[in-house]
Each structure stands twice: as C-alpha cells, then as structure tokens.
Design a protein around this nucleic acid. Structure first.
Lengths: 242, 242, 242, 242
DNA sequence: TATGAATGAGGGTTCATTCAT
DNA sequence: GATGAATGAACCCTCATTCAT
C-alpha cells in the first residue's frame, strides 16, 4: 500500500496470487508425499499453506486436479533440473551418467513422492494428458540415447526402450534400497551403472566421434580383450588336449 | 463327537472353510489391485467373494490384516512359482534368465497388484514382519547370484545388490511399458537383459567351473568375441590408416 | 449311558438342562453387571457359560428376555435372602436393621448389577410384569413396617412410602459411597440409620410391646429429654432476664 | 481484518456459534436422557438440534466427549440453581429444606437424565475429572451441613457423609416413586424429610447460637417437646400403675 | 438338543466440497 | 478474492440373531 513502487499494483497482485498458488502446491506436494493420495487431507494442505480450506478450491477444482498439478509441476521441475545437469558437449555416456546421478539424487530426496506418482499412474486412463510431464522427463533419456547413437557411441537404436527401462528401473530400485536402509552409496550405484552401460551399450568404435578420442579407452579395451582371449584359450586347451 | 463317521463331514467342513477363505483372499486381491488400499471397499470384496460383509471379519481382524494376508499369499506363491521355474542344474545365467522370464510374466499378469504392493511397502515400519514374504522372494535372485559366483560364472560378490536392483528394476519397468502399451515383447526384453548380464556380469573364465562345461557356451562366447574384435579392428584401422 | 443309575435318565436330563440354564443365567448376570446391557455381548455370555452362542437362544428369545430373567432371578434370590435374614420374633426396628444390614451387604457385593437394574427400570413400560420381583422385594420392607405399626412400635402408617424411600435411598447411596471409595464402614452406616429410625420413626410407647420391654430405653429417653429441657430453659432464661 | 465495523458481525457470529452449541447440548441432553448412552444416536441428536451430523464433530471430538460436556453443563446449572434457591441468612435446617425442595423438583423434571448420570458414573475411572461438576454439586449439601454445625444447629460433624447419603438417597427414591406413579406429593416428601432431619440431626441447644435466635423456633421446639413428654408419660403410667 | 459359522443392518466418524459472509 | 463453518455421503466394523448341520 505505502509501497512507492505501487505503480504496478497489478504485478504485486499477480505476484501475490502466484505466491499463494505456489504455497498451495508446495504444501500439497509434501502432504501427498507423506500421506499418499487418500491419506492426504485437504484441511492439512490448507493448514500447511497457511490458507483457508475453501481457498484451495479457488485454484483447483478438486483434490484430483490439485494432485495433477502437483505432479506436473514436480516432473517439469525435474526435467528442467535434468537438462541443466547434463553437460552439453560431453559424450553421451557421460551425459547419461550425469542424468543418472541427478535422477538418483532427486529420487532419493523425494522418494515418497516418486513412489506415490507411480501409484497415481495406474489409475489414469491410457491417454491422459496429465501424464505428459512424466513422458517429457522420460524423453530426456531418449534424447541422449539417440545422440549417442548418432555420434556412434552407442550401437543399436532398436534397444532404446530397453536401455531406458534398465536405466530408470535400476535407479529407482537403487533409490528404494538406499531409502529403506537409510544409507547412501550413490557412487557405488553410479559405478555399477556405468560399468553396465559401457559393457553393454557403448560402442568401442570411437573413430568418428567428433570431439574427444580417448586413446586410453582403446588401449584398455584391447588389453581387456586380450586377457579374456587368453583365459578362453586356456579354458579350451586343457579340454582339447584331454 | 465320538462319532467315527464325523471325519468326512469335518473334512468337508474344513474344505468349505478353506474354500471360503480362499475366495475372500482372491476377491481381496483383485479389489486391492484395482482400487488400491484406501480405494478398496470391504463391501466390494465381500460381494466379489459372494460372502456377507461380516463374514470377512471372521477370518481377518480388519482391512489391514486382510491386506497383509493377501500380500503374503501372493509373494509366497510367487516364490514357489519362481523356484519351480528355475532349472536346477543349469548355469546360473540360465537360471537368472528363467527367473527373469517367470518374473516378467507374473508381473505383467498382475501388474496392478505389484505396483500396489510397493505402495504398501512404504507405509510400513522398517521391521514389519509382514514384509517377510517379499524379502524371501527377493532372495531367490540372491541365491542364484551367489551360486553363479561360487561356480565361477560371475565375477565379484560385492555387486549383488546392484545386479539385483538392475534385474528387478529393469523387469518392472519393462512390465510397466508392456502393460501401458498393451503390447508383449517378452522375448525382446529377455534378449536385452541376457545381453546386459553376459556383458557385465558373466565371467568368461569357464576353465575351473566344477560342474558342467557346455561346449555350446564356449562356441557362443568365441563367436561373440570374434565379432567384437572385428568391430574393434574396423574402429582402429581407419584411424591408424589415417 | 453306562451309568447303572440310569433308571432316572429323565432326572439327569432335567438336571443337566437346569444346570445349563443356571450357568447361562450366572454368566449373563456377571456380564451384564460388568458391561451394562448394551455393553454385554451374547458371545461373551456364551463363552462364560461354556455354551455355544446359539444355545442361549434355545432358552431365551433374545437378549432382552435373558436380561429380564436374570433380573427376576436376582431379585427373587434377594427376597429369599432377606426373608431368611430377618429374625422373625424380634421388634420391627430390629427386623428393619437386619434387613438393612443384609441389603447393604448385598448391594455392595453386587453394586454394578444393582445400578444396572435401575438403568433397566426406566426403559420399561409402567406395567411391565418383569418388574414384579423387584416390587416383591421392596414389599419386604413394607411388611416389617406394617408389623411395626401394628405392634405399636412405629407411629403412623401414612408415612410408610417415605420411610421406605429413605431406607433404600440412604442404603443405596451409602453403598455407592463405599464402593467408590473402596472402603467398608457398614457398622457406621447401620448406626446412623438406626439413630434416624429410632429418632423419627420409633414410638416411645413401649408399654404393650409384647416381648422385651427395655427399661433402660425408657430411662435413657427420659434422661435425654431432661437434659434437653434444661438446655432449653437455660436458653430461654438469659433471654427473658435480659 | 482492520475493519472497525467487523465487531458487530463477529459478535453475531459468536452468538450464532454459541446458540448452535447450546442447541446441540440440549438435543444431546434429551437424547441421552431418553435413550441412554449406547441407545443415543448421533444422527438423532443432530436431527433434534437441526444440524448436520458432521457439525457435531466440529464442537466435540466424539460421542463420549459430548456426553461429558452435557453432564458437566447439567450439573453446573444444577449447582447454580441450588445456590440461588438457598436463602442465605436462614438457619441451616431451612437451607437444607430449600435445597431439598429444589433438588426434588429438578430431579423429577429430569429424572431420566439423573438416572442416566449415575449409570455413567460407574464406567468412569475413579479420578476422572469429568465427574468434578457432580462432586461440586454434592458439596452444596456439605457446605450447609458444616454451617449448621458451626452455628450449633446440628450436633456432630462426623456424620455428614451419612446425612448426605440419606438426604440425596431419600430424595432420589422419592423422585423415582413420584415419576413412576406419575404423581406429585413434593410437600409430603418435604414434611417427612424435615421431620427426620429435625428429629435426628437438629440440635435443640440454641443458647449460644451466635447469630439469630428465632423466637418462633423456640416456641416450636417447646411445643414439640411437650407433646413428646406427654406421650412419654402416657407410655409410662400404664406400666407403673400395673 | 447343540453348535458356531454366517448374516447384514446399523452407527460412529471422516473429510471433500460448498456457500454465506 | 478469501474464509471456515456446515454439510452429508460413504465406509469400516460390531454383534444380535439365524439356521444348516
């Protein structure tokens, strides 16, 4: 009121409204995460947002729509965060690892909410637009994957869907394990995932990778294969000799 | 009481009771899977089981206990099925694949219930005995894994937890994808999983594997390595030539 | 069956039935006393009586009728006990005191049930025959009272109803106090009641009391009155002298 | 918020709320009195109060708390009424009679509720604070009694508890009789009670009564004693003459 | 006659949603 | 817009009563 910058009261108004809406969403997010959809009470959300119960209904038609918006906001933010966390020019494998680390951290931080999201997913009809933000997030992986294929880092395109399932599936289970045990071994999980990706997905053909060609990588791979071959031969010879 | 002919009716009696209990459990299973815990209505379960509402309470103290028993029964049956599906004398990798195929099939069949289970898992205190059947099922993987390590098929023991997360995580996500798209490409998923396991987990050193040395395995491995080597060379040559 | 005294199986049968009925009534009595009418559960009564739930309904149409019978049995037994406790040839005042002591003891012993009875009384229509046993018990007092009047021990007949209310009312409240405080001062209560009865009810005209004429009583009364009179005069004189 | 005219609507608001709460309490009072605790239905109370069922729970956590408040309100009002009905400067005996008349009237008016109260009392643990209003009411008698003793009107202090039991016990039974017979002889009951109190409790020694010495009292006492003496003499003479 | 499994009506309580202020 | 009191439908659970065995 006495604000000298009151030239733009509209902006102030709008900001107020947005702040209120944001408070409601944040409160709802926490309540949903802690209590699940049915366990969450509109009254509790209102209390957490320092808002009257009726006020919520000025912004959202009902509990389900509130949930929908919370979910959308969460996954959108997750997508933004992921995009920000990915080094733009790095090899795809490194981008994947960056995404993995980001994803694991976020999932562990908000594990209740994530689990709760999948609970929601099942109730929805197949073509519900409200799941779009989730799909958009998932596609972050797909983009990196395709880039990796395009760059010749990854072998086949046909398997994207499987690698995606493996990627998110492993991370979700790893997160669950970490949360349940109240431990944190992100690095160990990362190492394992990288091992798997490199062993099964990464293409050793690095020739035309436009940016960095790691000579060491090649050497390592060759050395490893030689060792394996030797073992193989040793495994065969005794047999044939006998 | 001392009537010798009372055995038969008693048996019939018992059978009836067990049939009724089984009907209730099955009805509850479906209702929980479709509606979630809070969404499930005791009246609906009773109707599905062709039983009066009050009857359920002759068998289970309350909704929570009913849930507990349903979950226990489901996971126990899953464990039995898994154990039966695993070929006893095969290499660990084959056992894992058998488990994977079995798991994927079951999860797809009962996807709602599985998802619902994990929703339940989070509400439970850490040491709830009611989760034991789930833990027992998970250990089926661990047993195979350890056998693989003991037999020299798999490399390190330290990573069991990660491989387990990867295994179940990928399968659950694959199942979700299949259910959501209403498609079925179990074989494709199996192939991918096997590829990953062989590439990242399987030990090529078969020499001292105490039990069976499958000649075919050897042949496959050799073929795979040759293909990889060729790729390697092709990757290197253009480079060196340049 | 192999009982050699099986000549009178009918008697044995009847005895068995009566024993069972008695067990049910006793069990119901305890359950009603402890839990009240609504709190009492037929299942609990059956358990206490070592009888199947359905069996109760072979003897009593429903819970209300069972209650009715329990109440009737209780008050009838109370009446018998009271009649037995009253010395037949003693002065009415002594008979009243005997009744009082008996009543107080029983009421304290079975306080829950008594209180529960009056709770029942209100639900009943005015002319319910099921209250007859209670009315019969109450009349024990009336009979003694009338005898006291007839014998010239008590003054007027018109006040019976009031003395009866005072008698039972005081005793019930005394019992309540004793039960609530978990104390027992029956003698003190008796002394007070006797004091009140003698002071307000008993006729000092003992002349024609057929049995015992307590000279001492007379002397005491006279002495007391003289003292009172003296006090009175002393109270008046100073006043008048002033 | 800072609207100065907001006071009036607030007051109206508050009044409305209090009216509603009062309506609920009154409705609950009637329902409890008529049906007992278990028999009372929240739906019926709501209907009687012209309020939705859920509304009751805005004011009281549950049925038990509603009962508690009803009981408290009733006994508090009873206490206020009693204190108002007692003439402050009169002799203790007259105060007791005023209390008795008030009590009897109220108990008859609300007999069901009173009986219902004692039914409740037994279910409560010994030290339940919710019974305090009842205790406070009972102490009204005690206060008068003690005053009577202090003023020299009543003889011993030790018997307060007995006189209290007699007082309330007789009145409750008298009320029950009146209610059951649908008659009203309050005066007769009063006369009897006064007779008993004067005969057993009142102290004729008025000499040192510090405050008021009522000439009429003296006259009455003298008259009574003379009558008693005459009776005494008549009782003795026939004897001595014989 | 005795049993006890089955029934299902009924009631206390919760909470999303509405609407008068 | 904002409030929060009011609403009432919905649901879990109890338990008196029945009836097939």
């Amino acid at each position: 009121m006495a604000d000298p910058s009151s030239e733009k009261p509209t902006t102030t108004q709008r900001e107020k409204l947005e702040a209120k809406e944001s408070a409601i969403l944040a409160a709802a997010h926490r309540e949903f995460a802690e209590m699940g959809f049915d366990g969450a009470k509109m009254a509790a959300i209102a209390r957490r947002a320092s808002v009257a119960e009726g006020t919520i209904y000025l912004y959202y038609r009902n509990k389900a729509e509130l949930l929908e918006r919370v979910v959308a906001r969460f996954w959108s933010a997750l997508t933004e965060g992921a995009l920000a966390a990915i080094p733009e020019q790095s090899p795809a494998i490194e981008q994947l690892m960056a995404l993995a680390r980001y994803h694991l951290t976020e999932v562990v931080n908000d594990f209740d909410f994530i689990g709760f999201t999948s609970q929601v997913r099942q109730k929805k009809p197949r073509d519900d637009r409200s799941l779009d933000p989730i799909r958009r997030y998932v596609r972050v992986f797909d983009a990196i994957y395709r880039r990796g294929v395009d760059r010749g880092e990854f072998s086949a395109n046909t398997e994207c869907r499987h690698w995606r399932d493996l990627f998110y599936g492993q991370l979700e289970y790893a997160a669950r394990t970490m949360v349940l045990r109240n431990s944190n071994d992100t690095d160990s999980v990362m190492a394992h995932l990288e091992h798997v990706l490199r062993a099964g997905l990464a293409q050793p053909r690095l020739a035309d990778s436009p940016q960095q060609t790691h000579e060491e990588d090649l050497g390592q791979l060759l050395a490893a294969m030689k060792r394996d071959l030797e073992r193989l031969e040793q495994a065969i010879q005794p047999k044939t000799s006998t």
